[in-house]
Design a protein around this nucleic acid. Structure first.
Lengths: 110, 110
DNA sequence: ATTGTTTATCGTAATATTGCAATATTAAAC
DNA sequence: GTTTAATATTGCAATATTACGATAAACAAT
């Protein structure tokens, strides 16, 4: 089939899965880290930073944008991409909650 | 092509991407949350908890296991699955670092 | 040994993802 | 208005993922 059965899961589960999926490719992790490294986010040279062709990079950027992880404002000729702090915080909080609950459990087995 | 060009990225980037990818499906998020909810991890009824057929669940479990997110010990007839705290901590720490750096930047644009 | 229970694997169909060449779009610069 | 530069879109091939029926494997219980 190949199509995820999203309708059977909660909105929250789908949301986290979508964000995780968007980061489930090293190129997109590299993009995230590059956006983080660059001082200002007026950056038109993401393509040069990655070992991939321009259309491929563009596609990865689109996926990050669709997931809401980055925002892209048109700035004349170039595009100003930057990370959406709010959305990344969701991921951070999610994993913090998980690990906190894990610590409380103090692994009764395994 | 369909094959990720992992060789062009750092080990760390590939590692995080692999973990994120493993959680990039609502069923696998649901499995993680179920393992977290259940008191002891001697659990043989993950299949009943999910709206998916048994082979599909088995496949998702395998992927979580491959990524290292869960461990599975054979316990007679059933299998004792549980979350690998260490691996989940990697994700937590990664996103904490990202958000900390983001806060320091205090978004100069967008 | 046969039965029932649980989990894994195989095979396969439907769909999604990855990657890039070619081309289009957009807007600044001349 | 033509050129230049940056990014997006289209089209396509290769591969991966998702899902499940059928079947196998492993073991407990009778």
């Amino acid at each position: 089939m190949g199509a995820t059965k999203t309708e059977h899961f909660t909105d929250k589960q789908n949301e986290i899965a979508t964000l995780a999926k968007a980061l489930g490719h090293p190129a997109r992790i590299a993009i995230l880290e590059y956006l983080l490294k660059v001082d200002t986010c007026i950056c038109g040279d993401i393509v040069n930073e990655l070992p991939l062709a321009q259309p491929t990079v563009s596609q990865h950027l689109k996926e990050l944008k669709n997931a809401g992880l980055i925002k892209g404002d048109i700035e004349g000729n170039t595009i100003c991409y930057c990370i959406d702090e709010k959305v990344l915080n969701k991921l951070k909080t999610y994993f913090e909650n998980i690990t906190t609950k894990l610590e409380k459990k103090k692994s009764q087995c395994c």
